[in-house]
């Protein structure tokens, strides 16, 4: 990667930070727990990093394989578990009878 690419990544990093601030600025207390759980699942994206490190290594050594194995397991638990538990939590927030049944189970 050259400097231009790196700086582009930094630009993306900064903009993402502002998006994160903007999106969350108005959230009812009611949704704090699901929101935390949901963002928790999203940072499970780190599983991609584990896949890349192992997947792009040429002849990975045994220690690297072990470390990457654990990393992929951890990351997968974070992603899958996070989204499932968030979904369960949100399913309990039933919409008021008047507001139509757009939510709930699909």
């Amino acid at each position: 990667m050259d400097y231009t690419g790196f700086l582009a990544n930094i630009a993306i990093l900064v903009l993402s930070g502002f998006i994160g601030f903007a999106v969350i600025s108005k959230v009812p207390n009611t949704l704090h727990t699901p929101l935390m759980s949901g963002t928790n699942a999203i940072h499970g994206i780190v599983v991609l990093g584990a896949l890349v490190v192992l997947g792009t290594a040429h002849n990975p050594s045994i220690p690297l394989q072990i470390i990457s194995f654990v990393a992929i397991v951890f990351g997968t638990v974070n992603v899958i578990g996070g989204f499932v538990v968030t979904d369960r939590m949100l399913a309990m927030f039933k919409t008021r009878p008047t507001s139509g049944a757009t939510d709930g189970k699909n």
């Binding site: 990667m1 690419g5 790196f6 990544n9 930094i10 993306i12 990093l13 993402s16 930070g17 502002f18 998006i19 994160g20 601030f21 999106v23 969350i24 600025s25 959230v27 704090h32 929101l35 935390m36 963002t39 928790n40 999203i42 940072h43 994206i45 780190v46 991609l48 990093g49 890349v52 490190v53």
Partner: peptide
Amino acid sequence: AGLALNNIAMIVAGMIVGASGTIL
């Protein structure tokens, strides 16, 4: 980690969580 690995999805997702988590 996304910066180090040049992985744009990790950069965006990680930073959004970092920023929103800080606000929360």
